[in-house]
Design a protein around this nucleic acid. Structure first.
Length: 976
RNA sequence: GCGGGGAUUGCCGAGUGGUCAAAGGCGCUGGACUUAGGAUCCAGUUCUUAGUGAUUCGGGAGUUCGAAUCUCCCUCCCCGCACCA
């Protein structure tokens, strides 16, 4: 049996015991104050992996730490199944998507070894309920298999009817508080499915990053009153319009839209239909039919011609653009092309004289450019024609950026003169819209296709419901809550703040996915978006057990009941009548909520800050009274493996279910906890896991050696033992301080690794001590480590705790109080002193390259301590100068005798100002420390004789005059 | 673009004004041991030196008795920007 086999068995043994004894099932009646921690429930559409494990592991360490620090810890778990993923899996299994099938066979095979059964299970996933059930069950087993100290009696899923009632209630409250608004909203839309699409629905959606762009459609009036609508992102350039471009050979429609007649491309007409417009097509025309006609430019009232241009894309916005050759490189290039293109001029019978008269009109002045930036850039980049797309694209980008950020509107723009382009853009748009000369036209930022193959366009949904996170009062209150919260690590507070700042109206209902039906539009197929399922559900944990135990029906979970439990509104008797629930049950639920809430700590991954964690704060302040607001969040970064992000496509995922077999649970927990701080992306590397394994094994061996030790009473520990005890105490104290500050890494480093090193060290320095003493000391230390490290390596700790004949679960055992005394501090200082001394000796030995027979150690005379002390005193208030030291020394009774030496010494001191901060031992104590370790020092250097001298002693052996070089904490050395 | 985070010695990663040439791990080199294991232990891993010295923490400038740590500028990298959980 190897070590790992051993501890794997031990892990199973203790998990079973914890389950049987319901060690972590929480009860209200406890002598300890409650502490309620949540880690967001996982999404049950697939197995979790070691990356998720990092987050839950930290949650568990917090929970176990608090449990061993005098709290009645409550850590429940549930499952998220709403939204689109679970539904999508079911759909793809049903439609026999090969890739998804294979993936899910893989997933299920993690848990079900029999391939026939695994296949049956996957087949059953055509029903979405089975997906959710299978993985919810698998994940809770994963968690318990990791030794997480969960209360697993509170499970539910967000698809449960009872839960839906709770979410309905949430929306009822939000609506009462006027936080839900209604309006129109542009979204990405599949023209085939007639449905909203998200990144997952778009072909290569993860790479394309398609967005909604808002263009301004500007109405240029034709002589017959019909509008030719040209779309632009730069409406402020309307003052520089010289002509309109239209694709001569493409199909355009004359349409009746909202009571007007427009000409736009055929594609545009289709798109506009989805953007809140009533459209009927009057006739179809070719672009060339309007070429050469004149239109009136809005605002300027100029008459400009319509010219043909093949660069115009009819499938982009309205398929018509207006030309601003001064500021738009494409337009300039197209203009020049046309002016030189006699064939086209002839073909469309253009007025050559008029065409040649067209010159760029400058309307923006921008630093670093002349009047016509587009002309300049085209020349600079040597643009040959409008087909020079790459160069033109680059020129366009450059000008757009430069003009947007540093452009100023010129005289020609009338009342907009002097405005920055950034502002003029909005001002001109408003003006145009006011005069009904412009309208918003939405287009996708990139051309994209739905997975179904159809084109994706932008549609405008009417009567869309929003959560109005932009509501001033709401935001203000959320900020107030945030300011009172503890965020760990605190650097993420800024991320919250910036999220809060940009949060605005957010659509809160969907047509796709699983979830709670939106109560205000029953029957219309609107589902509450699934993030609302993750924001106040922590409160639901406090009552779910009562609901299940009492078999309460969903229809009994009326808003009045929730109002009473959560908001203390209404009367118990009335609620009892309304719900047909006994007052006892209602009372029990209310007491449970009031006992557990608020949720003292919510721990999760950094990635969730900008969505559900922020929303959790918003929803809490909107719904609950202040005393139930969230007090604290803690965050951790993600985990990668061997330098690579984990992903199913990379096939480098370690599922949680495989951790116990692959590594062992405690090993994984230990390594995850110590590998990096929470705010660092952790890299899981096999070669480094090995280190944790070796240390764990070493600890296991050390501890098992102590199992049978009978402690010797009334022991007076020798010097090395005292030093050892102090150093372990100091380490443990640091560990406790670290975990108190939520710093799990330091907790493990100090509490575990540093102590193992201390034990190693002790084995060396205590070799000559009596066996009883060594064993007693070691046993004492190991027992302490077991208790304090139990949150990280609970299984091994339980086993050792038991083997050492201790009663009860170590998981429930309270941490000892560790007090660091002055003596401990002095011991640590001595240990440090000795280790520096050893290093110095070693260094010299190495340089000398011979083995010394005698080691003379010269400790400084005490007056040097006094000199340092005086210098340190001066240093506290001002910069230290030689003169200052000298004059202070002159005044000191002790020092005035040594003025000559002090002059040299002071020069030395100034070279290294750090010595003004060192802690010192008196000459006598330095000597004592060395003597306490004499044997060890001697042994370390092939039994050389160790001789200690104090510089001030008379008649010391000092042939090389070393003694005077000794400084406090830094003895001089002579090796013979 | 806006907002945020970051750059540490071969690698990962600690470290926010002073025992910092910089923890710990990995890797590499040498040695010990030898039930020969991809185990364990020890030493080394910027240069220099019978020690207490020099140059280092993306680049440059500054503040300070003292800077990896503070300030400013520059370069580069990462993340978020919503209907996606």
């Amino acid at each position: 049996m190897t070590f790992l086999d051993d501890i794997r068995e031990i892990e199973k043994k203790w998990q079973k015991k914890w389950q049987e004894d319901q060690v972590f099932v929480n009860k209200i009646d406890s002598p300890y104050p409650k502490w309620f921690i949540t880690v967001p429930y996982p999404y049950a559409s697939g197995p979790l992996h070691i990356g998720h494990c990092r987050t839950y592991n930290i949650g568990d360490i917090f929970a176990r730490y608090k449990r061993q620090s005098g709290y009645n810890v409550f850590w429940p778990m549930a499952f998220h199944i709403t939204g689109t993923p679970v539904q999508a899996v079911a759909f793809q299994i049903k439609s026999k998507d090969k890739e998804v099938w294979e993936t899910y066979i893989d997933y299920v095979s993690i848990y079900e070894k029999d391939p026939v059964i695994a296949k049956e299970i996957v087949a059953s996933f055509k029903d979405q309920k089975n997906v959710a059930n299978f993985f919810a069950n698998a994940i809770i087993q994963d968690f318990l298999g990791m030794g997480f100290s969960l209360d697993d009696t509170r499970q539910f899923t967000t698809g449960d009817k009872e839960y839906n009632k709770f979410i309905e209630w949430q929306y009822k409250i939000l609506n009462e508080k006027n936080l839900i608004t209604k309006g129109s909203y542009p979204i990405l839309w599949c023209i085939n499915d007639k449905n909203a699409v998200g990144e997952d629905d778009i072909q290569d959606g993860d790479l394309l990053k398609v967005e909604v762009s808002e263009f301004v459609g500007i109405k240029f009036k034709l002589s017959n009153g019909t509008f030719l609508v040209a779309a632009t992102l730069r409406p402020e350039t309307i003052y520089g319009a010289t002509n309109v471009w239209i694709h001569p050979d493409a199909d355009y429609n004359e349409i009746e839209i909202d009571g007007e007649n427009w000409i736009v491309s055929r594609e545009a007409a289709e798109k506009l239909r989805e953007q809140e417009h009533n459209i009927s097509i009057i006739r179809e025309i070719k672009g060339k039919e309007v070429v050469n006609e004149e239109v009136t430019v809005p605002i300027t009232e100029e008459k400009i011609p319509i010219y043909p241009a093949t660069f115009v894309d009819t499938d982009h916005a309205t398929g018509v653009v207006y030309s601003v050759p001064a500021h738009a490189p494409y337009d300039y290039a197209a203009l020049i092309d046309l002016q030189n293109d006699d064939a086209t001029i002839e073909e469309y019978n253009l007025n050559q004289e008029r065409l040649s008269r067209i010159k760029p009109i400058s309307l923006i002045s921008v630093k670093g450019y002349g009047d016509f930036p587009a002309v300049e850039l085209c020349k600079m980049l040597d643009v040959k024609s409008q087909e020079d797309k790459q160069k033109l694209e680059k020129a366009t980008q450059t000008i757009y950026k430069d003009e947007f950020y540093s452009g100023i509107m010129k005289e020609i723009t009338g009342k907009f003169k002097g405005l920055e382009v950034e502002q003029a853009k909005d001002a001109v748009t408003s003006k145009l819209k006011e005069d009904n000369l412009a309208t918003a036209v939405f287009e996708t930022s990139k051309k994209a296709l739905c997975r179904c193959g159809a084109q994706i366009i932008v549609a405008v949904l009417q009567d869309q419901y929003f959560l109005n996170y932009g509501d001033e009062k709401w935001k203000e209150t959320a900020f107030k809550a945030l300011n009172k919260m503890t965020i760990t690590p605190d650097k993420y507070r800024q991320t919250f703040e910036s999220t809060f700042n940009w949060l605005d109206k957010r659509p809160c209902v969907r047509k796709r996915g699983l979830g709670t039906e939106f109560p205000m539009t029953k029957g219309e197929g609107w589902i509450i978006e699934s993030l609302s399922d993750s924001v106040i559900y922590m409160a639901f944990y406090t009552i779910i057990r009562s609901i299940k135990e009492n078999n309460i029906q969903p229809n009994q979970l009326k808003p009045e009941l929730f109002d009473y439990i959560f908001l203390n509104k209404g009367k118990m008797k009335e609620v009892s009548d309304q719900t047909s629930l006994s007052v006892e049950i209602i009372k029990e639920m209310k007491e449970s909520f009031e006992y557990y809430y608020p949720n003292d700590l919510r721990h999760t991954a950094v990635a969730h800050i900008s969505n559900h964690l922020s929303f959790a704060i918003f929803h809490h302040v909107a719904i609950f009274p202040e005393k139930y607001w969230l007090p604290a969040f803690s965050l951790n970064e993600m985990l990668i493996r061997e330098g690579q992000k984990m992903g199913k496509s990379k096939r480098n995922v370690i599922p949680i279910a495989q951790i116990p077999e692959k590594y062992s649970v405690d090993l994984t927990r230990l390594h995850l906890a110590s590998i990096a701080t929470a705010d660092t992306v952790v890299d899981w590397r096999e070669t480094e896991v090995n280190f944790a394994l070796q240390r764990l094994r070493k600890f296991w061996e050390y501890a098992n050696r102590s199992v049978d030790t009978v402690k010797t009473e009334n022991l007076t520990p020798a010097f090395p033992s005292r030093i050892f005890l102090s150093s372990v105490k100091t380490n443990l104290k640091k560990a406790l301080k670290a975990i108190e500050d939520s710093n799990i890494r330091d907790y493990v480093l100090e509490g575990f690794y540093s102590n193992i090193r201390a034990i190693d060290e002790y084995h060396k320095i205590a070799e000559h001590l009596q066996r009883e003493e060594r064993e007693t000391i070691l046993r004492e230390v190991i027992e302490q480590i077991i208790v304090i490290m139990a949150p990280v390596i609970p299984h091994i700790s339980e086993e050792l705790h038991e083997r050492m004949n201790n009663q009860g679960y170590v998981s429930l055992k309270q941490f000892p109080e560790i007090k660091i005394t002055e003596q401990d501090k002095s011991n640590s200082l001595q240990a440090k002193f000795i280790s520096n001394l050893l290093e110095d000796i070693e260094e010299i030995v190495k340089l000398v390259k011979t083995t010394p027979k005698k080691i003379h150690i010269y400790i400084n005379a005490d007056w040097k301590n006094e000199l340092y002390r005086v210098a340190q005193e001066i240093f506290e208030n001002e910069a230290v100068k030689i003169g200052k030291i000298m004059s202070a020394a002159k005044e000191s009774k002790i020092l005035s005798k040594y003025m000559k030496e002090i002059a040299d010494e002071a020069k030395q001191m100034l070279r290294d100002p750090s010595i003004f901060r060192i802690e010192m031992l008196s000459a006598e104590n330095q000597k004592k420390a060395i003597e306490g370790y004499r044997e060890f020092i001697s042994r370390s250097f092939v039994d050389a004789e160790v001789l200690v001298h104090i510089a001030s002693d008379k008649e010391i052996y000092d042939p090389k005059n070393k003694a005077q070089k000794a400084r406090p904490m830094r003895p001089a050395l002579l090796l013979d």
